[in-house]
Design a protein around this nucleic acid. Structure first.
Lengths: 136, 136
DNA sequence: ACTTGCTCCTCTAGTCACTAGAGATCTTAT
DNA sequence: ATAAGATCTCTAGTGACTAGAGGAGCAAGT
């Protein structure tokens, strides 16, 4: 584990843009790395793992604060898993719900396309596909 | 279709906050409603349907511009079939891709929860679970 | 009619999570 | 030694809200 990775490589390897990496550092989500003689950031493998985790978690819909919590918990392996589990379950539920509604929308779009193929404009129900009351 | 719904009721029924409704109006996502004698906004059922759709679509991660297009699709007055078809196909593709990615991420979360069920965070491999390379 | 209290008005400014640009400095390759 | 490219800091802009100030409208009780 040598700590020689410059920010550009880290960005490429992690899929997180350079300014975003610096932004994550500024909000304390990523620890400040060591600097070279010429003041450049130099990262190690750990930062790469962490960044990839952050990126995936963001894509999962975790907010930065949740990610902070997960990272903190991940660094204290002696603790109980209950908190992480609860967090993960919450997001799993939300994501499943999202998939359901997206599927409904997809169905409507497929209907429209099918109708078009037959030369007529479909009665459009895409609004209905997502217009159930506010309960959420 | 009576047009007597004040903004507060609309907010409650749609699950969209009052300032957000006004914001949507300001960016042209929601049409300007009629006003009362005293300059208050008064909405009809159509606005409610539209707002609910917008809310769901936002929750699903659609950007405002995409929503604008979807709404235009829904209201396709007498557009050519080809245009509607193309738009619908574009969105269908985007939505399918989204569903795929969400499903993959759901799987990851399920793994995380399963790992957690068996013990400590040390065995959760949270970081590993979400740290695959940047394929995107 | 008056007051209390709620809703609504506009407008400005703040938030979150980035993202882009300017201008300077460092590093590497020739 | 020099040119090309990567990186530095700093400021400002973006999208999509969100909160607050200060004021006007309206419904109900006295």
């Amino acid at each position: 584990m040598k700590g020689r990775i410059p920010i550009g490589v880290l960005a490429r390897e992690s899929g997180v843009k350079i300014p975003t990496i610096r932004y994550y550092e500024s909000i304390g989500l990523l620890p400040e790395p060591v600097r070279s003689e010429g003041n450049r950031r130099l990262y190690g493998e750990k930062a790469l793992i962490r960044l990839r985790f952050i990126r995936h978690a963001r894509e999962l819909g975790f907010e930065v604060d949740s990610i902070r919590e997960l990272l903190a918990l991940a660094e204290q392996p002696q603790q109980s898993c209950a908190k992480v589990d609860a967090l993960a379950r919450d997001h799993l539920k939300a994501i499943s719900h999202r998939i359901e509604r997206l599927s409904a929308l997809r169905t409507e779009l497929e209907h429209m396309i099918k109708a078009c193929a037959k030369g007529r404009i479909a009665q459009c129900h895409i609004l209905d596909a997502l217009s159930s009351p506010a309960s959420s």
